[in-house]
């Protein structure tokens, strides 16, 4: 005979698992500040404006592009492209600082600094060779008074936690168990039908 409570226990476990799976796989909205993947494009929000952000590590990863975290230490090229034409007329300043938690003395923690400049072509390139893994913060300021600010924390050389793979494996085990259970239930039904 079926164990009714057993059946519903398994069902609720499955629902909980899927919910957890869904939550972990979805992008953490505030995790990377002003930088996120939006519409299959890596966008940097700068006040009312947007810039397209692309990171490259040609010696390490060929022509692969990165958004947010940089996978390995080494020579890194970042290019930000202005989406709105207004960004080509106002000065843009870029600064990358080490994430120490204290942003009062910016110069002390700066690793890269592009002084304010008007980029008529709309493309802001910067190149830096990260030597050690760590957490950093990118600060992009635009406007004559620096009124538009984008702050985005990112990590370099810190492998991200990829839950997807392990969840997939878990899913496989659940599938195997589920099919085994289904097979058993079918057997019981058949035996019940025969008697």
């Amino acid at each position: 005979m079926h164990n009714r409570t057993g059946c519903s226990w398994r069902r609720s476990t499955l629902i909980t698992c899927s919910a957890v799976l869904g939550l972990t796989l979805s992008q953490g909205a505030g995790a990377h500040g002003g930088l996120s993947v939006d519409d299959d494009m890596c966008k940097l929000r700068l006040g009312p404006f947007n810039m397209h952000f692309t990171g490259y590590q040609p010696e390490i990863n060929g022509n692969r592009e990165f958004c947010e975290d940089i996978p390995k230490v080494g020579n890194t090229i970042v290019v930000m492209d202005a989406i709105e034409p207004e960004l080509r007329e106002i000065p843009i300043e870029v600064r990358i600082i080490r994430d120490t938690g204290d942003e009062s003395q910016l110069d002390a923690v700066t690793v890269v600094h592009l002084p304010p400049k008007i980029y008529v072509s709309g493309s802001v390139p910067l190149e830096y060779s990260f030597t050690t893994p760590g957490k950093f913060v990118g600060l992009v300021t635009a406007g004559a008074q620096g009124q538009y600010v984008s702050r985005f924390p990112f990590s370099v050389g810190i492998p991200p936690k990829r839950y997807g793979f392990y969840l997939l494996l878990l899913g496989v085990v659940v599938l195997g168990l589920g099919m085994y259970r289904y097979s058993g239930m079918k057997r019981q039904r058949q035996m019940a039908g025969q008697t």
Binding site: L175, G176, Y180, S183
Partner: peptide
């Protein structure tokens, strides 16, 4: 059944 489930996994 057990062997098949094991093989599947």
């Amino acid at each position: 059944d057990r062997v098949a489930a094991g093989l599947l996994v």
